[in-house]
Design a protein around this nucleic acid. Structure first.
Lengths: 220, 220
DNA sequence: GAAGATAACTTATCAATGGTAAGTTAACGG
DNA sequence: CCGTTAACTTACCATTGATAAGTTATCTTC
């Protein structure tokens, strides 16, 4: 532990305690990814913050990418949980979808970096870029599956809405895709262009929710 | 010119002919950016294809980024032109906006890499990431301004639509932002997740256009 | 047509990156 | 005490974007 390392955690771990080192690495990586972004966060920087040598990280992660994947899963679990709560407490199908959109918006704006990496990554490794649309039949224990799970919930909501008697203007999966694309468009824009003088951020969120709901669900 | 270099262009340029080398570099860079993406395209690869040494590129461009900027401008000029044609030939305001959206969609899907770099870049240098939302008052000769110019046209269309008597559900700039976000959401999704089993790509485009137009312009 | 000036280049080199190979140290079980 | 092995380190590699400094060919001027 030297005085210049932000979170150095002392010397060598005892036998069997390697997993605590792994968590220290994840914590440091998370901080740095959020501070600097994926590319600017180097293996050496993470290692410095943890207080170990750079190659030590490879004892716990296959590569830099796997660190990010583990972190994304942690974060998306929060969103998945809040969606589950909506499903358990809100019965009206239209209101469910709206609440989903609100939760999604809130999540995206609260976790812009994880959102970027899962849903907006363009110059990051292929295996990360594909996470957002991985099929729900994929192994759910595989890291980075969160994005696809979230989308799958929306599809289910639309299917159930139709079964519940709502009239949809498009097939349920198309409706889900359109809803997601609209909301995603708002999140993506606000995240990617934070300095743009948006007319009214709140109105963009609620407005888009109104627009896609009205566009997808036929008037009663 | 050696037989292994795809587009090597012979020896040293004569005095005053440096600009032709610059164009050769741009051409090679364009090919490689499209083949490999921004990150995977290295200075050395570009130089190899042109048939010069790597540092020679720095005679014509400040850095790798400036090459991409020059290319983005070239491409966006095509979209700007097609929008200008719509403005000149389509008078009905609602139809204008729809045609704008169609042109925008078509452009995005036809030039996914340029689109990614201007509107979706996340791990590319800051100066590129900001291009999409640069203010229209910025110097339009500055490289990479295309994205902002396009958006500005949409705002103008909405303002004129309101002046023309159409009733808008939100302020014109908010309407423009919502329209753009919806369409952008479709383009971004189709570009970023090309392998996802989208229900119906054409329907997503036309559907989103219907949805945002209906959502933004009040029924007659 | 020789002499400079300089545009157009090259070679050599830099620090930083992600990642690997191979060795070292410390903790535990017997 | 001793061997095994988890937990690490040092040394290194190829590749990256970029720079410094030198070289060569072409044009202008006398």
């Amino acid at each position: 532990m030297n005085a210049f390392s932000t979170a150095a955690t002392g010397g060598r771990k005892k036998r069997g305690e390697g997993h605590t080192r792994r968590e220290e690495i994840l914590q440091a990586a998370k901080e740095l990814f959020l501070e600097l972004g994926y590319e600017a966060t180097t293996i050496r920087r993470i290692a410095d913050r943890v207080g170990v040598s750079a190659p030590a990280l490879y004892l716990y992660f296959q590569d830099k990418e796997q660190m990010m994947l583990a972190l994304c899963d942690q974060t998306f679990a929060v969103l998945i949980e809040s969606i589950a709560e909506i499903e358990n407490t809100v019965t009206d199908p239209r209101e469910r979808i709206r609440r989903f959109g609100e939760a999604y918006l809130k999540f995206g704006l609260a976790h812009p970096d994880e959102y970027k990496l899962i849903f907006l990554g363009t110059n990051i490794p292929e295996s990360i870029r594909k996470l957002g649309h991985r099929m729900p039949t994929d192994d759910p224990t595989r890291p980075g599956i969160g994005g696809a799970l979230v989308f799958q919930r929306l599809v289910t909501m639309l299917v159930e809405a139709k079964q519940g008697g709502l009239k949809l203007n498009y097939p349920p999966d198309t409706c889900a895709e359109l809803c997601w694309m609209g909301i995603h468009g708002v999140v993506a824009a606000l995240i990617l262009k934070p300095d743009f003088p948006w007319s009214n951020r709140d109105l963009l969120g609620t407005g888009m929710l109104d627009i896609v709901l009205n566009g997808v669900i036929a008037a009663a």
